[in-house]
């Protein structure tokens, strides 16, 4: 049975509450008037074809992309405030980073605590990372242990395999001990063992009461692991338990929106995307 640590008055409080979110890069909005309430303390998977706005949604939540309009509240507080207090953790796709950077695994994981260290204030926020001790030190050790990277902690990050890079980024997100964990394709390109480890850690994080929100286009993975599925394609197509959402007719619907609309508007690029995703679903 799933934990619901935030049950108040019999209803589950919304971890993420989005109203009228519209995001546009150039002309056509990637997300158009999205309204979405997500339950707290669950393992939530956002699923949709390429170009459906999944990563965009995540980047807006992480604060790196400014929406055209819309309001987002996290645990019923303004998102900016939650971000400043380090209550939102974000795990990017590893391609976004330069792995030739002269840092060790530990350096990277510890950087997940920089927000906490700043909030503590005082002269200690100016200390170099090598002198950081206390809670931060313990949290880093735990995160390294959970992701099975403790024995590689002093390794330079350029020596890591793809799966290990994912695990380092996961550890950096875990170490924040954030209420909301955002993950961009956490299982893309990892081997079976790493995939199993990552999913085990995510379930454990959820069981501790955190909300885990991951974006993927891997339908099989979502079916196995998610408590709650959101289908998205520029708008919310539906949300609910995996069995209902991952039924063939729902998947057909989420892919078809992209399929029909671009035909009418003569937009060949999106059409290819939709075709590719339908292929994956079959």
């Amino acid at each position: 049975m799933i934990n619901h640590p935030r049950i108040a008055g019999g209803t589950v409080e919304a971890a993420v509450s989005i109203r009228d979110l519209t995001v546009a890069y150039d002309r056509d909005p990637v997300l158009a008037g999205v309204d979405l309430d997500l339950p707290a303390g669950r393992l939530i998977t956002v699923l949709g074809p390429n170009g459906a706005g999944k990563s965009t949604l995540l980047r807006v939540l992480a604060g790196t992309l400014k929406p055209l309009r819309g309001e987002i509240r996290i645990n019923d507080r303004p998102i900016e405030e939650e971000r400043r207090k380090s209550r939102i953790a974000y795990m990017p796709q590893q391609e976004q980073l330069d792995w030739d950077f002269p840092l060790s695994v530990r350096d990277v994981v510890l950087s997940g605590r920089y927000g906490h260290i700043r909030q503590q204030g005082g002269w200690q926020r100016f200390l170099p990372p090598s002198l950081i001790r206390g809670d931060h030190y313990a949290a880093v050790r735990r995160a390294l242990q959970d992701t099975d990277m403790l024995d590689r902690q002093h390794a330079s990050i350029d020596s890591l395999s793809g799966g290990q890079r994912k695990r380092v980024l996961l550890a950096r997100a875990l170490v924040q001990e954030a209420d909301l964990l955002l993950l961009d394709e956490p299982l893309a390109g990892v081997d079976g063992a790493s995939e199993e480890l990552i999913m085990r850690v995510l379930r454990q994080t959820r069981d501790q009461g955190h909300t885990v929100l991951m974006v993927t286009h891997d339908i099989m993975g979502a079916r196995k692991s998610a408590d709650h599925v959101v289908l998205i394609n520029r708008q919310v197509v539906g949300q609910g338990p995996p069995d209902a959402m991952l039924a063939d007719d729902m998947l057909a619907r989420v892919a078809t929106i992209n399929w029909i609309k671009p035909m009418a508007e003569d937009h060949p690029v999106s059409r290819c995307d939709a075709a590719e995703t339908t292929g994956q679903g079959a």
Binding site: A62, G63, A89, P92, Q96, S111, G115, R118, L182
Partner: peptide, 12 residues
């Protein structure tokens, strides 16, 4: 310098 996106999401 390493990861501006992470810096932003930590509220910097």
């Amino acid at each position: 310098v390493f990861d501006p996106v992470q810096a932003r999401s930590l509220g910097l």
